[in-house]
Protein backbone atom coordinates (compact mmCIF):
# COMPACT_ATOMS: atom_id res chain seq x y z
CA UNK A 1 0.00 0.00 0.00
CA UNK A 2 1.48 3.27 -1.11
CA UNK A 3 2.06 5.99 1.42
CA UNK A 4 -0.95 8.22 2.01
CA UNK A 5 -0.44 11.73 3.24
CA UNK A 6 -2.89 14.40 4.28
CA UNK A 7 -3.42 17.61 2.32
CA UNK A 8 -6.23 20.11 2.08
CA UNK A 9 -8.71 20.40 -0.73
CA UNK A 10 -10.03 23.91 -1.18
CA UNK A 11 -13.28 24.11 -3.12
CA UNK A 12 -14.57 27.40 -4.49
CA UNK A 13 -17.99 27.59 -6.13
CA UNK A 14 -18.64 30.88 -7.87
CA UNK A 15 -20.29 32.78 -10.68
CA UNK A 16 -18.93 31.84 -14.05
CA UNK A 17 -17.57 35.33 -14.76
CA UNK A 18 -15.07 34.85 -11.93
CA UNK A 19 -13.54 31.77 -13.53
CA UNK A 20 -10.29 33.29 -14.76
CA UNK A 21 -9.87 35.49 -11.69
CA UNK A 22 -10.16 32.51 -9.38
CA UNK A 23 -7.69 30.40 -11.30
CA UNK A 24 -5.24 33.28 -11.19
CA UNK A 25 -5.87 33.72 -7.47
CA UNK A 26 -5.24 30.11 -6.41
CA UNK A 27 -2.09 29.91 -8.51
CA UNK A 28 -0.78 33.20 -7.14
CA UNK A 29 -1.31 31.91 -3.62
CA UNK A 30 0.73 28.79 -4.28
CA UNK A 31 -1.53 26.11 -5.75
CA UNK A 32 0.29 23.97 -8.30
CA UNK A 33 -2.80 22.76 -10.07
CA UNK A 34 -6.57 22.97 -10.18
CA UNK A 35 -9.64 21.18 -11.46
CA UNK A 36 -12.65 23.01 -12.79
CA UNK A 37 -16.22 21.84 -13.32
CA UNK A 38 -19.44 23.51 -14.32
CA UNK A 39 -22.02 22.99 -11.62
CA UNK A 40 -25.56 23.95 -10.68
CA UNK A 41 -27.03 24.70 -7.33
CA UNK A 42 -29.03 26.97 -5.12
CA UNK A 43 -28.03 29.13 -2.21
CA UNK A 44 -28.78 32.24 -0.22
CA UNK A 45 -28.05 34.63 -3.10
CA UNK A 46 -30.77 35.33 -5.59
CA UNK A 47 -30.28 35.66 -9.31
CA UNK A 48 -27.05 36.59 -11.00
CA UNK A 49 -26.00 37.93 -14.35
CA UNK A 50 -24.40 34.75 -15.57
CA UNK A 51 -27.33 32.65 -14.47
CA UNK A 52 -29.24 32.47 -17.71
CA UNK A 53 -26.17 32.02 -19.84
CA UNK A 54 -24.44 29.13 -18.19
CA UNK A 55 -23.84 27.55 -14.85
CA UNK A 56 -21.55 28.19 -11.93
CA UNK A 57 -17.97 27.07 -11.76
CA UNK A 58 -16.47 24.82 -9.12
CA UNK A 59 -12.72 25.07 -8.67
CA UNK A 60 -10.92 22.42 -6.64
CA UNK A 61 -7.30 22.59 -5.68
CA UNK A 62 -5.08 20.42 -3.46
CA UNK A 63 -2.74 22.47 -1.30
CA UNK A 64 -0.88 22.64 1.99
CA UNK A 65 -2.82 23.87 5.07
CA UNK A 66 -1.04 27.25 4.94
CA UNK A 67 -1.86 27.85 1.29
CA UNK A 68 -5.44 26.76 1.95
CA UNK A 69 -5.75 29.42 4.64
CA UNK A 70 -4.43 32.22 2.45
CA UNK A 71 -6.69 31.22 -0.43
CA UNK A 72 -9.74 31.19 1.81
CA UNK A 73 -8.91 34.57 3.34
CA UNK A 74 -8.32 36.12 -0.06
CA UNK A 75 -11.55 34.74 -1.55
CA UNK A 76 -13.45 36.00 1.46
CA UNK A 77 -12.07 39.52 1.44
CA UNK A 78 -12.22 39.94 -2.31
CA UNK A 79 -15.57 38.43 -3.25
CA UNK A 80 -17.97 37.80 -0.39
CA UNK A 81 -19.52 41.23 -0.37
CA UNK A 82 -20.72 41.52 -3.97
CA UNK A 83 -20.50 38.11 -5.53
CA UNK A 84 -22.13 34.73 -5.25
CA UNK A 85 -19.22 32.71 -3.96
CA UNK A 86 -18.73 29.96 -1.44
CA UNK A 87 -15.47 28.43 -0.35
CA UNK A 88 -14.78 25.49 1.91
CA UNK A 89 -11.90 23.26 2.81
CA UNK A 90 -11.56 19.59 3.65
CA UNK A 91 -8.76 17.28 4.64
CA UNK A 92 -8.02 14.70 1.99
CA UNK A 93 -5.58 11.84 1.69
CA UNK A 94 -3.39 11.80 -1.36
CA UNK A 95 -0.69 9.73 -2.93
CA UNK A 96 2.43 11.48 -4.19
CA UNK A 97 2.12 14.56 -1.99
CA UNK A 98 5.10 16.17 -3.74
CA UNK A 99 2.96 16.69 -6.81
CA UNK A 100 0.88 19.29 -4.97
CA UNK A 101 3.17 21.11 -2.57
CA UNK A 102 6.69 22.38 -2.42
Amino acid sequence: MALRQTLRKVTIIAERVLRDDLIELVKAKGAKGWTLAMVEGEGSRGIRASEWEGRNVQLDTLVSPEVADTIMDEVGSRYFKDWSVIVYVADVEVLRKDKYVG
Binding site: G46, I47, R48, A49, E53
Partner: peptide
Protein backbone atom coordinates in the same frame (compact mmCIF):
# COMPACT_ATOMS: atom_id res chain seq x y z
CA UNK B 1 -28.59 40.99 -22.65
CA UNK B 2 -25.57 39.13 -23.94
CA UNK B 3 -22.59 41.50 -23.97
CA UNK B 4 -23.75 43.94 -21.31
CA UNK B 5 -24.61 41.65 -18.36
CA UNK B 6 -21.19 40.03 -18.29
CA UNK B 7 -19.36 43.37 -18.51
CA UNK B 8 -21.59 45.02 -15.93
CA UNK B 9 -21.25 42.12 -13.53
CA UNK B 10 -17.49 42.56 -13.64
CA UNK B 11 -17.42 46.36 -13.49
CA UNK B 12 -20.32 46.98 -11.11
CA UNK B 13 -20.57 43.92 -8.89
CA UNK B 14 -22.64 45.89 -6.38
CA UNK B 15 -25.44 46.52 -8.88
CA UNK B 16 -28.39 44.20 -8.52
CA UNK B 17 -28.75 41.87 -11.56
CA UNK B 18 -32.47 41.57 -10.78
CA UNK B 19 -32.95 45.11 -12.10
CA UNK B 20 -30.95 45.01 -15.28
CA UNK B 21 -31.70 41.45 -16.35
CA UNK B 22 -35.40 41.77 -15.64
CA UNK B 23 -35.64 45.05 -17.53
CA UNK B 24 -33.53 44.02 -20.53
CA UNK B 25 -34.71 40.47 -21.03
Amino acid sequence: YIAAPAAVRVALPGANPAYYLTLAL
